[in-house]
């Protein structure tokens, strides 16, 4: 079954389509959430919120607006960032550092899951620092090009090409 059909079924509230999509993206979404909140319990809570929301708002998705994965990614990033702005989160995490996804990979000990995290870790370590930063901002944090250019202090026109080069580097490493 193609992704398009699966998404259509999902929008018709089909349980097995929902399950299939969940399994396709859950790990990635959990990774994005965790990278923002840095707390497994909160990440689990947000995982539930994100997929519940996706189910409830499935009508709002259309292929013309973007990839289904990207749509989920946006819900996850927004929910996570909202969470980090909430009072109770700030209370518990006052000293949350601005960490990059790279740190998680470097500190990871349970690398035995479906994703070849060991290989990934090695590859990501080889990525140039500027790549790590731009990937962090655009994919994990959902920064706009403007926000990213301001944060990285590079011209907005450079963002697009630099990001292209960095993703290419990653693809080469991952053999994609």
């Amino acid at each position: 079954m193609s992704l398009e059909t699966l998404v259509l079924q999902f929008q018709k509230k089909d349980e097995s389509a929902f399950e299939a999509l969940y399994h396709m993206y859950q790990e990635s979404i959990r990774g994005v959430i965790f990278n923002i909140v840095r707390d497994e319990a909160i990440a689990e809570e947000l995982m539930q919120d994100v997929f519940v929301k996706a189910w409830q708002k499935s009508d709002s998705y259309s292929a013309a607006k973007g990839r289904f994965f990207t749509w989920l990614l946006n819900i996850a990033r927004n929910a996570s960032i909202d969470k980090t702005r909430s009072k109770d989160f700030k209370k518990g995490k006052q000293n949350l550092k601005v960490d990059f996804f790279v740190d998680i990979l470097q500190n990871k000990t349970d690398l035995n899951r479906q994703t070849d995290a060991i290989g990934l870790k090695a590859f990501v370590e080889k990525l140039a620092d500027k790549c790590k930063k731009i990937i962090e901002l655009l994919y994990f944090k959902g920064f706009t090009q403007k926000e990213a250019s301001e944060t990285l202090e590079i011209p907005i026109g450079t963002i697009k090409t630099r990001n292209r080069n960095c993703i290419n580097e990653l693809r080469q490493m991952l053999d994609i």
């Binding site: 790990e27 959990r30 990278n35 996804f101 995290a117 993703i167 990653l170 693809r171």
Partner: peptide, 15 residues
């Protein structure tokens, strides 16, 4: 998309 999926999955804690 596949590359980004792999990368983001890599930082996920245990499901």
């Amino acid at each position: 998309e596949e590359a980004v999926l792999k990368l983001t999955s890599g930082v996920a804690p245990a499901s």
